[in-house]
Design a binder for these strands. Structure first.
Lengths: 231, 231
DNA sequence: AGCTACATTTCGAAG
DNA sequence: CTTCGAAGTGTAGCT
């Protein structure tokens, strides 16, 4: 990994055209050839970058560029597309190289899958008398997150999201259309479950007779821990 | 901006819990306090990070950690949430600080807005005899990208995306339901226009009687340039 | 390889 | 200030 701090300007051409005026920035060249161009703020997203696979070519500036104060020209060309990043470096403040080795990678815990597992265990959150049929109930257009038997007959199809957006309601609607054609399952009611449900999504769901269930992840995990401790 | 290259392990707790085993990585501390933890590959996305506003506190390890080889402990706490990033540094290979100043920011050109403008100018791409009513035609549930008059009466509602996905078809369907209730507009046909239309989206659109139009951005821009040059 | 859904998404614009 | 859609999205999982 090579780290360079320098005043530079940059131009990207590819899926769009973009230009960065002259300023001091951090340039990171990774082992796979990818290049990041970071400013001293913002978020984790670079101002400009080139994703691998790509190749970096460093050249000396032509007379015109040299007259403008350019000392190095970096051309980063993507291997499989016409995407190209051109960087003109002026003053180089820092330049160092480091051997990092392969990274073992990130280990995650606590996403949608976990919510699904917890709700399957705590199926009564749908209301008394409900019982789990199964998680990932397969249909022709994809798996329903949770299918449960309703207390007065019929079933409940549950769509789970971390953030309940309008497209989640659309997805559940498609499942319900299909499931209600099955006489062994019908009538199938829909429940849209999420840690947070957007107002527009709630309106659309209610309008279609779909129930909304806000999930408290911490509380559900607490119940899970308490149950685990009993055994 | 502070740059550190060190062997380290990290733990993130917040919206999820994640853990990074010991390895050599780049740590970037930006002027706004945000921290990025990069490996020597992947993409522009860090393995772990903390977005601003947040504060970094550097402490010395306790005896237990010191025995494991930890020389520094970084605790990055988000200012408005419980998000927290804890980094244990072992061997520090590099550590430098740099003054970068404010960045003028990126100048972009060539996104969906441009596609919309070009299609509005080249409305005959919808077929001979079409004429533009207006861009961003307002409805109760949002603006339709383009509304045009059809040659044999009635209208055409166009939804424009760079990448034509299934949710774009859903969006257009909602507009069409609404627009067709207006006797001054009906019948309103739908056209789904995008640089690239996903197979699933095309199937759904066709099933609903919505036309698909693949837009060639370069060609459309070429026509635009040619027209501009005449004046 | 292609496609789908998720993301600690981030980012920007509009209401 | 929220809300909502786009992104040069990236990424993982599955067919």
């Amino acid at each position: 990994m090579r780290l360079v701090v320098a005043t530079c300007s940059a131009r990207y051409t590819g899926r769009l055209n973009a230009h960065l005026p002259l300023a001091t920035r951090l340039l990171v060249v990774k082992a796979d050839g990818s290049v990041l161009l970071h400013s001293d703020g913002g978020s984790y997203k670079p101002l400009n970058w080139m994703s691998p696979p790509c190749t970096l070519k460093t050249t000396t500036p032509d007379d015109d560029a040299a007259a403008r104060g350019v000392t190095q020209v970096w051309t980063v060309q993507h291997a499989k597309s016409d995407d190209r990043l051109e960087i003109e470096l002026h003053d180089v403040v820092h330049d160092s190289e480091h051997e990092l080795g392969v990274d073992p990678g990130l280990i995650k815990d606590g996403v949608e899958a976990h919510l699904q597992a917890l709700l399957a265990e705590q199926i009564l959150l749908l209301g008394d008398g409900h019982s789990l049929v199964r998680r990932e109930y397969m249909t022709a257009i994809g798996p329903v997150d949770i299918l449960a038997r309703a207390p007065q007959g019929g079933h409940v199809a549950v769509e789970i999201k971390r953030r309940g957006d309008i497209d989640g309601v659309e997805q559940l609607t498609r499942y319900l259309d299909l499931l209600n054609r099955d006489p062994l399952l019908a009538p199938v009611r829909g429940v849209f479950a999420a840690q947070e449900i957007k107002p527009q999504a709630r309106v659309l769901a209610t309008d279609r007779g779909i129930g909304c269930l806000v999930l408290d992840y911490e509380a559900m995990r607490g119940v899970d821990d308490a149950e685990s401790r009993l055994f």
